[in-house]
Amino acid sequence: MMSINNKGDKKMKKYVVLTFGLVLFLSATTAVEAKSWQAEIQEERTKLREEIRNKIATASPASLRQQIWEGLHRRFPFLLPAGINRLAIKEISSTTLPAEIKVVKDDQSITLKISGKTIILRKFGGKSSLAELHVGDIVTARGTWVDETKAVLDTRVLRDLSIQKRYGTFWGKIKSISSETKTFVLETAGRGEQRVFVGSETKIVSRNQTVLTFSDLVIGHRVRVTGLWDSTLKTIEEVKTIKDWSLPPKPTLTPTPVK
């Protein structure tokens, strides 16, 4: 029995030794192959770096920007949506949402789909609406193309560069007044003459915050106006406040004669 067990143990030891040797051989082969792969990867990286350096050295800044934009757009289509730049509106399907706006680029008609999720902005970044858009306005748009034909854009942001409006405060003197239209011409120092439209919600106060009416405004009064300024039409609408610094009149001091 002892001899049989010894023979079995010897066979088992040989099997273990052979298996261990095979594992070492395969491990060594794998390590060699891994080093070979690493060398190939390093070589490819070196070639790629050289190729990029050569492209940067020979390409123009505009070409580089275009290549970077296209590369980022391919990798991150939702982070950097596509769109159109500075195109004129040819047609507006409706003044209520949802609507479609037609523009033309390189003789190709493009449809901008406008929904309740679309953000519409004026040139200076103020919020706008579909009702403010007109045929002929110059717009830019960002969104996602519906298909590869790039004929329909699901618009996320639409900016109308022709609506040059923003809220601001203006100082000046009243040059003329129209009681019929409840407007007056404000003569400013830096922006010339601006027509001010006074509405029912406009708050008119004096220098000491006394409430006034439109009829209290007089030509020559120095006023401060806060409202929505249209730099193209030179108008101030949606006026929030008008402060008349000429009211109440400042008392005039009469010099006392010296006796």
Rank of each mutant, 00 (worst) to 15 (best):
S3V: 12
N5T: 15
G8V: 12
G8Q: 12
G8E: 14
K13H: 12
V23G: 08
L24M: 05
T29A: 13
T29C: 10
T30G: 07
Q38P: 10
A39H: 14
E44W: 01
E50S: 11
K55H: 13
I56H: 10
P61T: 15
Q66N: 12
I68W: 05
W69D: 15
L72C: 05
R74F: 02
R75C: 05
P77R: 14
K90A: 06
I92Q: 10
V104E: 04
Q108W: 00
S109T: 10
G116I: 07
K117V: 07
L121M: 03
G125A: 02
S129L: 09
L133N: 00
G136S: 03
T140P: 00
T140D: 11
A141R: 02
V146T: 06
E148S: 14
T149V: 07
T149W: 01
V152G: 01
T155Q: 01
T155M: 02
F170R: 08
I177M: 09
T181R: 08
E187P: 05
R191F: 14
R195L: 12
R195T: 15
V196K: 03
Q209N: 11
T210L: 07
V211Q: 14
T213F: 01
R222Y: 13
R222V: 13
T235H: 03
E237L: 06
E238M: 11
T241D: 08
W245D: 11
K250W: 06
T252P: 07
V258D: 01
